[in-house]
Amino acid sequence: MSTYNKTAFITGATSGIGKATAQLFASHGIRLVLCGRRQAQLDSLKKELGVKTKVHTLNFDVRDREEVKTAIESLPEDFAQIDILVNNAGNAHGLDPIQEGDLADWDAMIDINVKGLLYVTRAILPGMITRQSGHIINIGSTAGKEVYPNGNVYCASKHAVDAINQGMRIDLNEHGIRVGAVNPGLVETEFSEVRFKGDLERAKKVYQGYQPLTPEDIADIIYFVVTRPYHVNIADLVVMPTAQASSTIVKKKA
């Protein structure tokens, strides 16, 4: 499917998978609405990608339903028609057994990974339904397919994304809107740095001894998904580095 004259809305666009997807989309001329909480990074990305395509940025927190509504309603006419929504914003906080879990960590994961995805999607859907077209890509995780030790609430939030993805596809079928999920395994991003609350040494160890996926690997997949002929919908895709067999089995160099 041609991406000519298409507009993509990407949450969590300031780093990792969101940023790599924005960069790849820009190289193919897709107009971009880039969303995040860090204005400096949004400004830098707009300057970088603005030479390739039209870019509009929105600084808001997906956890705040009023901020989401106000931001999306503020879109200028050139960016108001969203053809592709990439629900990428997400986070993991802590890696504790359930009995030691931090309630603030639980709130952050559920509010961003689940409620934030719902708030953004709900605000964008009316336009897609009116046009009877659109494509929603929900970024899930292998943690939404299995549960691993101390993953409890994070895994639960990603299992929720998996269920929402399936329910969304059913509910929007009559409106001709494509819905699919990309579920990555180990990708080297800021993910572990956030999970371990700035402990860079601990975060670095997650990716040592094997070749993890890169944000660009996932961006390639997302671009592939959105460029299939419109009658083709990639509903649910799981991708892991070759070294990874499951959330707990990774072949590392001795």
Rank of each mutant, 00 (worst) to 15 (best):
A13M: 00
S247P: 04
N87I: 01
F79R: 10
A80E: 12
G50L: 12
T14L: 00
F79Q: 14
G36L: 01
M128P: 07
G209R: 06
S192F: 04
T21H: 02
D43C: 03
Y230G: 08
R178V: 12
K197V: 13
P97N: 15
E174G: 01
Q208E: 14
S74A: 13
P149T: 13
R65C: 05
L85S: 08
R178A: 14
Q166K: 12
D96V: 10
Q166E: 07
K46Q: 08
M128V: 10
A104I: 04
T21L: 08
V62M: 06
V187S: 01
D220F: 14
A123E: 15
I72L: 11
I249E: 13
E67R: 09
F196C: 01
R178S: 13
A22V: 03
I129P: 03
I72N: 07
A245L: 11
I136N: 07
L49M: 05
A22W: 03
I164F: 10
N138Q: 14
N183V: 08
A8K: 05
D171K: 05
H93S: 04
A254T: 13
W106Y: 14
K253E: 12
I17E: 00
A71C: 11
L34Y: 00
S141G: 04
D61M: 06
P212H: 05
D217N: 15
N183D: 10
G18E: 00
T21F: 01
C35N: 07
